[in-house]
Design a protein around this nucleic acid. Sequence first.
DNA 1: AACCTACTTTATAATGATTCTAAAGTAGTG
DNA 2: CACTACTTTAGAATCATTATAAAGTAGGTT
Lengths: 138, 138
Amino acid sequence: MENKDTFVKKLRSSGLRPTRQRIEICKALYDRKKTFHFTISDLAKILKSKSNEKISLATIYNTVSAFKNRNYLKEISINSNKSYFDTNVSNHHHFFNESTDELIDLKNEDVGNIKLKKKIPGKKIKSVEVLIKIQNNN
Amino acid sequence: MENKDTFVKKLRSSGLRPTRQRIEICKALYDRKKTFHFTISDLAKILKSKSNEKISLATIYNTVSAFKNRNYLKEISINSNKSYFDTNVSNHHHFFNESTDELIDLKNEDVGNIKLKKKIPGKKIKSVEVLIKIQNNN
DNA sequence: AACCTACTTTATAATGATTCTAAAGTAGTG
DNA sequence: CACTACTTTAGAATCATTATAAAGTAGGTT
Ligand SMILES: [Mn+2]
Ligand SMILES: [Mn+2]
Ligand SMILES: [Zn+2]
Ligand SMILES: [Zn+2]
């Protein structure tokens, strides 16, 4: 159970005022044991049910975007319908269960080290990530 | 230079009538030496400039979707803005140049074999693909 | 060739996610 | 308390994509 103060400090330290709305969103996102993968509409539903305050959709978008810019969230592209976000901002790999639209973190050890054998002159590598699509056995 | 007849056969063999529009789209997509990565708007521009016939945007969407269903095209998710399609339908890995929004195929040999060390009971693996994001050196 | 019918194309409207606008509200400072 | 920059919000706007439904066409049949 993270303390509200933790979130207030985190927000202040990155130049974001700790508003009611942002703190509610922090609780929804970071007061968890496991990392959390979500879409905007997932988050909106959670906030509606778990929180007393009404938070507008615009604020949810604004806040998620601010958190992404500050590297508190990472965006994951799985398909073109909607955007997934991830509270695990480290470089890591994923399963995506196409039967349930669920994203699951893989530990880096679960995927052997990836040895890239190709040079790309004039370019720098920003990330190397593996996406493993899975389906339920029928 | 692929022959129009090739496309007619390809279309017929998958239950698609070889219409003017579909043949034009085949030419734009498959009459190439290298595999081709594109968005719908890329393709629409190409068809407008290279082809005499006017093809409606609805038909472009319909045809790309039909080709994807028949495994003549593969969809690649890079970011949530727009969908990329790929004439290379095999399982393969990509560079994505964030400076130019360009997708580049990697040969499977360029990325070592990926050894997945995790079991997922009740699930089957559909694909394992690596996405390497790169940027131009500033 | 004329005919039939299922498949296609197309213009246009609808949808849905995301972003923008501009007005009202609030946090932090003095 | 007063001030101002930052924030929230409802609602409009945008943009990619999908749906609708009417007109056109391919490919078979008489
Ligand atoms: Mn799609
Ligand atoms: Mn986005
Ligand atoms: Zn993750
Ligand atoms: Zn490719």
